[in-house]
C-alpha cells in the first residue's frame, strides 16, 4: 500500500488543538509521514477540538454538537488521522453519544471505523515502515493511556522508532503508568497530578535516556513542564518528530531561540 504509484489514499488530518496551538511541528511531521506513506493529505477547515473536555465533564450536549461538527468536517475522507491517541480515542467514543435511532449514530460509527492515530495507521493499516530518519541519542517511550488502552497502541511506535537510524530505545519502569495529565484533572487535582508526573519524570530520569518520547501532546507538555521545573536535562518530543526527521526544532518547552517567525 505504501507504493506511491497506486492511487493516493485520501486522508483528512485531525490536527488536534494542542498540536495546532502549542506545537504545529507535530502536525507538519504527521503530514510528512502520511505523504511519505503515499497519502494525499488535506486539512478540513471546519474542525476544531475533538470535544473531550466536554465529554469528560459530563456535558453531553456540547459533546454531541462538537461530534456532529467533526463528523461533517471529515465526511468524504477515506481516513481520518491524527497525532494523538487521546483525541482519536475521543472520536471513537462518538457513537456512545447518540442513541440507536439517531441517524448520527451511523455516521459516528462510520467515522470511528476510519479514524486512526498516526503510528497505528502507518503500521496496522498501511503496513508502512520505510522511515527515513536519523536521531542520535537514547530515547525512552511513555505509553499514553488512551492510545494504549483504548486503541491498543504499544508496539506500533516502537516498531517505527526501531527504523530511526541512531535512536537507541531504553524502556523506563512503569512506561504504561499514567503521567497525571488527564485533561482538566491536572488543574482540578493539581496535587495528585503533581505526584503522578513526579513519579513519571523520576522513572524517565532513571532510564538514563536523554529524550522522552510519546504520542500525545497533553502528556508531553505535562512531563516536559515538570522536567523543566525540576531542572532535569531530558528533552521531550512527540514520536512523529523523530519519525519524520524533524528534530532540528527545539524540544518541547525548550526554545531558547529566535521565535523565527514574527508574532
Amino acid at each position: 500500500m505504501s507504493d506511491t504509484q497506486t492511487a493516493p489514499i485520501k486522508v483528512g488530518l485531525f490536527v488536534t488543538c494542542l498540536a495546532d496551538m502549542f506545537r504545529p511541528e507535530v502536525a507538519f511531521a504527521t503530514v510528512k509521514l502520511l505523504e511519505q506513506a503515499g497519502c494525499d493529505v488535506e486539512v478540513p477547515a471546519a474542525q476544531t477540538c475533538c470535544g473531550q473536555p466536554a465529554f469528560n465533564s459530563g456535558d453531553n450536549h456540547n459533546s454531541r454538537r462538537i461530534a456532529r461538527q467533526t463528523i461533517e468536517a471529515f465526511e468524504g475522507y477515506q481516513y481520518v488521522v491524527g497525532p494523538s491517541g487521546s483525541c482519536i480515542g475521543m472520536l471513537h467514543h462518538y457513537p456512545e453519544l447518540f442513541d440507536d435511532r439517531d441517524p448520527w449514530k451511523q455516521r459516528a460509527e462510520h467515522l470511528k471505523a476510519r479514524a486512526f492515530e498516526i503510528t497505528s495507521f502507518l503500521v496496522d493499516e498501511l503496513g508502512f515502515n520505510a522511515i527515513e530518519s536519523r536521531f542520535t541519542g537514547t530515547i525512552t517511550y511513555h505509553d499514553s493511556c488512551s492510545g494504549l488502552r483504548e486503541l491498543g497502541i504499544k508496539q506500533q511506535p516502537r516498531q517505527l522508532l526501531a527504523e530511526v537510524a541512531g535512536a537507541d530505545l531504553r524502556e523506563m519502569q512503569e512506561a504504561e503508568t499514567c503521567c497525571g495529565f488527564g485533561g482538566t484533572f491536572c488543574v482540578k487535582y493539581a496535587d495528585i497530578s503533581n505526584r503522578m508526573v513526579s513519579n513519571k519524570t523520576g522513572f524517565a530520569a532513571d532510564s538514563d535516556a536523554d529524550t522522552l518520547v510519546g504520542g500525545d501532546l497533553g502528556c508531553l507538555l505535562n512531563m516536559a513542564g515538570k522536567l523543566k521545573r525540576e531542572g532535569r536535562d531530558i528533552q521531550v518530543r512527540h514520536v512523529v518528530e523523530l519519525l519524520a526527521d524533524m528534530t532540528d526544532t527545539p524540544a518541547i518547552g525548550e526554545a531558547d531561540y529566535d521565535l523565527g517567525q514574527p508574532l
Binding site: 502549542f22 486539512v43 503533581n194 523543566k228 521565535l259
Partner: peptide, 18 residues
C-alpha cells in the same frame, strides 16, 4: 495556577498550525 504551581508551561513554538 494548578499547572504552573508545579510545572512550567511550554509555550507555543510559533503561529498555529492552521
Amino acid at each position: 495556577g494548578g499547572w504552573t504551581d508545579h510545572r512550567d508551561m511550554p509555550t507555543p513554538t510559533g503561529k498555529t498550525f492552521m
